[in-house]
Design a protein around this nucleic acid. Structure first.
Lengths: 235, 235
DNA sequence: TAGTGGTCTAGACCACGGA
DNA sequence: CCGTGGTCTAGACCACTAG
């Protein structure tokens, strides 16, 4: 279980950035210096630096050197920040209430999103999520019954994604989200405790397993005065 | 202006995936085969394959081989799809109209977003963008004068990002976007040709150069009935 | 056991940037 | 000019997978 040399070099440089010994804009040791410092060949040094450049820690300028990037934004933070994480950033208490939990027959839209035939069984789950007891989001999830025969309300109240990845041992591959502005309809207004026809942020999410099949389709309404999406993109 | 060998190999493999000669799950030629096919050393082959793995085209299994990934498109489309691209997907003609083009003193908000002091000079550029002659988005850009002394209207009418990356030879590092729903104010209603207090999608974007400094801060209003954001996230 | 990718060496020549 | 990163070589040994 020996750590490869290039990973040792990577970790040393990351540590120095973490500790503040290397700051944004600083030039790090040149490849030839690092090669002599670690008694390795230059290609090994380059392997370490390439990885750090790809992860956004460093950037290079030919003829000048290799420099520390301004990396509050790591690749980890890429993509949209989820509801729970965002609420935690704002120090708000999170709570969920399940409104309905049914099975139904998929209509054309749901069927096409979940790669089913119209009329196939899907779970339909409505819930409201609160931050500091203020309703922030009203969502409806559609999940194929055929994929999760033993679904129950307890799974939905804890972490559905955890259940899939750790209990069923299936990896989640990717998702496609859409975001648009809408006026709230009466049902949404009631659930979010806002006036009729207020602006709301409407999101859909289609999430796929690593076999390429979708396992959920979600429609969600966010209160305009309580939530915004934040997204970091690299490169 | 000679293309490096590893890029030739990369392009050949990308082409084969594009043409369908290589499909999801197919094993590509081994590193030793590729080395003999291109009359290069194995390290050069590995440089090509490493890049394709990082871009999501391929994945490797030690002891087995290198395989074609199925999500090549999603990785490329990761992050939010831009206005021009989205309009093209919907086969709409794109047009921009610059409304105002001024310099002004940064207020507290603009200054903090652009790492300036309040009172520093910034360009303020308002424009409306149309799809098939329907106004889709009204945006206001703030750009530090100190970074782009020779800015003029023609740069903004063509591609600002192209100008930075290719003429000034500075790389763009990353951006932070926020998205929320709002009611349109009178100015926005007029520009987007919609009724007063209609729902609009409000976006801000703060974009950074590879030195870590921001070069633009954008506020944009999207017509709810004409635009939605689509986002792909991997893993 | 044979073949694959993972790690690593000790060199080389080039293009670019700054003094 | 010299030092930097960019590209490339012709080997080597290892760990893993499959037949």
């Amino acid at each position: 279980m020996k750590t490869p040399v290039y990973q040792v070099i990577e970790n040393d440089i990351k540590d120095k950035i973490q500790k503040g010994e290397l700051k944004h804009g600083d030039m790090i040791n040149s490849e030839n210096e690092l090669k002599d410092m670690y008694f390795v060949s230059r290609m090994t040094v380059r392997q370490a630096l390439n990885n750090l450049v790809n992860e956004g820690y460093l950037y290079r300028h030919k003829g000048k050197g290799t420099f520390v990037n301004n990396i509050k934004i790591e690749k980890k933070m890429q993509g949209l920040i989820g509801f729970t994480e965002e609420m935690r950033r704002m120090n708000k208490r999170v709570r969920s209430k399940i409104i309905t939990f049914d099975t139904m027959k998929a209509d054309d839209e749901i069927a096409s999103k979940l790669f089913l035939k119209p009329g196939d069984d899907v779970y339909s789950i409505e819930r409201v999520r609160y931050g500091d007891d203020i309703p922030v989001l009203f969502e409806r999830l559609f999940i194929p019954v055929s994929l999760f025969k033993e679904m129950d309300q307890k799974i939905m109240e804890s972490s559905f994604y955890d259940y899939i990845e750790n209990h069923l041992n299936i990896k989640i591959s990717h998702c496609i989200q859409t975001l648009e502005a809408k006026s709230s309809n009466p049902r949404v207004s009631e659930m979010l405790e806002i006036q009729k026809s207020s602006p709301v942020l409407f999101m859909t999410r289609n999430t796929f397993l690593d076999r390429g099949f979708p396992f959920e389709y979600v429609k969600a309404y966010y209160r305009a005065d309580q939530y915004r999406f934040i997204q970091h993109s690299v490169r």
